[in-house]
Design a protein around this nucleic acid. Structure first.
Lengths: 348, 348
DNA sequence: GAGGTCATTGTGAGCGCTAACAATTCATGG
DNA sequence: CCATGAATTGTTAGCGCTCACAATGACCTC
């Protein structure tokens, strides 16, 4: 009966079948109030019958809105970025936006520029950049883009609106926890110099020690990987018995390497050396021993990030602060207290 | 000088400035060969000067192509899905496509349906579903969608084109490795029943034992989490001395839990019990002891998945097999051989 | 030097939708 | 019973681009 059509049905086709004008179909779909119930029902039936779907491109062209946001990220297989990405997408979808992602192997001026171009070609209305490295943020500030950009991470003083977990506070929690447990001083294995988060955590660690009147010991550096933690752990093991009793490691993966190095060197955790990590990756609870660490609320990061971006896109009433710091939380486990050496039946 | 414009410049604006027709601008942008060099240069200069960017929606409307693909995924903070997602996006971008992602907390008929609707509204030309659960694949088969779909994972016999790592082979490699090392039998801690990968790995394990004339021991089940591995590990520890000397665990995270439970029970790995995992997450190398495991090549999965989808979208010459199985690789570490107990200087 | 070919550029008609406005219908009150 | 205005529906223009085709002119060939 119905002629076989190669093209998907258009609004006009639906209108014809329902015996109305295409504009009425548009009104039904747009949930415009001034449509008679009987008409609306007829249109909906026609839509159903033809399996009609509004054409995205035509709609976007007419409204000048694509309702699509872009996200630029790197290291998306790491827990932190992956969690942030997930949270951003979920928050955007809740607002009715689609998210197009570009995942980079490394964030340089060039790859970032290409990523923004690619997203721009894709008609995004705004972009969230998960840019934990300072260099990336700098690049972002220099690059011209025809849409608003929000940064997750980044440094406090920068121009671009940003959202992030308060890394400084997290480091203070971790370091303070160790001092409160009676340790005279706390060593620190930091992340790569170029990373803002690494810098903030190191600064928080230093500030806490100085506030307690303690001279900060030598700072070690890793690259976030378990291997770099393992190597630093070997070095740290050499300082046991010479004032080293506690280490604050800038992320959980490196802490894993530290734990292993200490164990191999015959150093017991937490009896000889207490260890605190950062991130609370799902595995941390099952390290040997389970790791005390700092948990970040990525879900909130995602929501606030999207909210900040939509403020600019939709001209929503801007919140007072375009720089949002979210509070992290200390999770205490056996790596700092022997009493928690056994995992509970149903942990956390 | 230039009048301040609220709207971004259009092709017509550029054409006017360059003293050509809008069609010539389109030709320059489309890299059409028949444009005089001098004209092309003039147009490019005008584009540069005005900061012109082609309007995505108008282009998509005229060409009936959005060059956007959708990806539906779940558990995107896990290593496997995150890696797959990354690989898919990278492969799609290499082909000039944009990727819109929907990350679900759980894959049910309802959430999947909503996800496909959301992507459909966003004008995607095709979708890759990372659907490791059987139920999800079933739901996908029932759902109507106006675009081609490719599944990553899924069961071998299904209708929808699929790509995936050969889980059965991976399990055979793992189990065979243990048998070759002299173990009489191999126990198995499987993943959730609903997961196709879990079923395939269990089947591969069973097949290898049966081929060796060994009666497979009782099968244990976990939910991929370290905690479930820990619990299973406690149970496994009870069988040591009664024929249990080797365990093939269906993923690395559960293996982490198993290792811990064994250690706490005073069982040594690998001297008393050898353990093999699956996935080769970055941490595996730093477990105590470093874990022998099966590595999956996600990058290839992504490339083949996108290729399969584009075959259908662009009507490219279809490869002979719409069901692609990629070979996994065994990575031997200390959890099965004491000789490999120390990590190398610069492990791969 | 007429006719033909090719390279180059321009013209006009949509793509399928929404926005603005015009037209129609219907209820209401004087 | 007609004026008045609100509710409902239709009509007409674009949105900014690409495609098909037409037009122009340069360059050959015989």
């Amino acid at each position: 009966m119905t002629p076989t059509r190669l093209r998907p049905p258009t609004m006009a086709d639906v209108a014809r079948l329902a015996g109305v004008s295409h504009q009425t179909v548009s009104r039904v779909l747009g949930e415009h109030p001034n449509v008679r119930d009987e008409t609306r029902a007829r249109v909906l039936r026609a839509i159903e019958e033809m399996g009609y779907r509004r054409n995205f491109s035509a709609r976007a062209l007419a409204t000048r809105r694509t309702r699509t946001l872009g996200v630029v990220a790197s290291d998306t297989t790491l827990y932190g970025p992956a969690s942030t990405l997930f949270a951003l997408e979920e928050a955007a979808r809740a607002e009715g936006y689609l998210v197009s992602t570009v995942s980079l192997r490394e964030l340089t001026m060039e790859t970032l520029s290409e990523a923004l171009d690619h997203l721009s070609e894709g008609g995004v209305e705004g972009v969230v950049a998960i840019a934990p490295q300072r260099s990336a943020v700098d690049a972002l500030a220099e690059l011209r883009h025809p849409f608003p950009v929000v940064v997750v991470g980044g440094e406090p003083g920068m121009e671009i609106p940003r959202v992030g977990v308060d890394q400084h506070l997290g480091a203070r929690l971790a370091t303070g926890h160790l001092l409160a447990a009676g340790h005279r001083t706390v060593w620190h294995l930091a992340g790569p110099e170029d990373w803002q988060e690494a810098a903030d955590r190191a600064a928080g660690w230093r500030a806490t020690l100085e506030a307690a009147g303690v001279e900060p010991p030598m700072l070690l550096r890793g690259d976030w990987s378990p291997l770099s933690g393992y190597r630093a752990g070997q070095e740290l093991a050499g300082w046991v018995g010479r004032g080293l009793t506690a280490v604050f490691v800038a992320n959980d993966q490196m802490a894993l390497g530290v734990l292993r190095a200490l164990r191999e060197a015959g150093v017991r955790t937490p009896q000889d050396v207490a260890v605190v990590g950062f991130d609370d990756i799902p595995e941390s609870e099952f390290f040997a021993p389970p790791l005390t660490t700092v948990r970040q609320d990525f879900s909130t990061v995602g929501q606030r990030g999207i909210a900040l971006l939509l403020e600019q896109i939709e001209g929503r009433p801007a919140s007072d602060t375009p720089r949002i710091a979210i509070e992290p939380q200390l999770v205490v486990r056996a790596s700092t207290f022997p009493s928690a050496a056994q995992p509970e039946g149903a942990p956390r």
